[in-house]
């Protein structure tokens, strides 16, 4: 029931966010209408980061206490994080084509996002390739922890790699995108962010429920064969 309320709230905010982002918000002075993609882009990457943080927390808790629930949380968050990271890259690419004239450039942030996608699709792949559930959970937890610890190091190295060799690109990590943003654009961004957050928690609770049902089904099978 709580999940249904969460889902309804998310849906209402998504529709409001769509209206504000596509109709109410003014076009950007320099980027024109393509700026509207940012109302999706920024919330999706923030949600992706949130989910990888949850993967890290769930992995640590699982190794510490060994409870299935924590592993289910990490696994669920990873799956949703991969979805939102992939969407972030697609949005960025579609935004980049009219803005920069190319679908892809080896900009520090783009590269970092792509590496995140590689690491966490690796996480899902690893889990799917190990039969034994307990072993899959432990392996996933280790990748979840190592991957998360690696993110700041990858961030630093990729940023240096680009900036020591060519002038900083349009998106600079040292400057938050909302520093010089018009309040008329801040509103749709805020609404969309809350909408994405609610959507994320709705999807997460759905995915966790799936994990629980699958776990029960597995236990039943074991019970029947025993």
């Amino acid at each position: 029931m709580a999940r249904r309320i969460l889902g309804t709230l998310a849906l209402i905010l998504i529709v409001t966010g769509l209206y504000w982002g596509l109709v109410e918000a003014p076009p950007d002075a320099r980027q024109g209408e393509t700026q509207r993609i940012m109302y999706l882009h920024i919330p999706s990457i923030l949600v992706a980061y949130l989910s990888f943080f949850i993967v890290f927390v769930g992995s640590c808790l699982y190794l510490w206490k060994g409870e299935r629930r924590d592993d289910n949380l990490a696994h669920s968050a990873a799956e949703i994080g991969v979805l939102f990271t992939a969407l972030t890259i697609v949005e960025g690419s579609i935004w980049g084509k009219p803005t920069w004239g190319v679908w892809w450039t080896w900009d520090a942030r783009l590269t970092l996002t792509a590496i995140l996608l590689l690491i966490f699709t690796g996480y899902l792949l690893l889990r799917s390739l190990i039969e034994d559930q307990r072993r899959a959970a432990v392996s996933g937890a280790i990748l979840g922890i190592i991957g998360f610890l690696d993110i700041p190091l990858i961030h630093m190295s990729v940023y240096w790699w680009r900036t020591l060799h060519q002038p900083p690109s349009i998106l600079r990590p040292d400057k938050a995108p909302w520093d010089n943003i018009d309040p008329a654009m801040l509103w749709p961004l805020g609404i969309n962010f809350v909408a994405f957050l609610l959507l994320f928690f709705y999807l997460l609770s759905l995915r966790i429920h799936l994990g629980e049902v699958e776990e029960q089904a597995r236990r039943d099978r074991l019970h029947d064969t025993a």
Binding site: L18, E33, T34, R36, L83, L87, I94, W95, P98
Partner: peptide, 16 residues
């Protein structure tokens, strides 16, 4: 560049 905007919104919401 509405084409790009609708492409992005379409892909995102359809995938979700």
């Amino acid at each position: 560049h509405w084409g790009f905007v609708f492409l992005a919104y379409g892909i995102v919401w359809c995938s979700i």
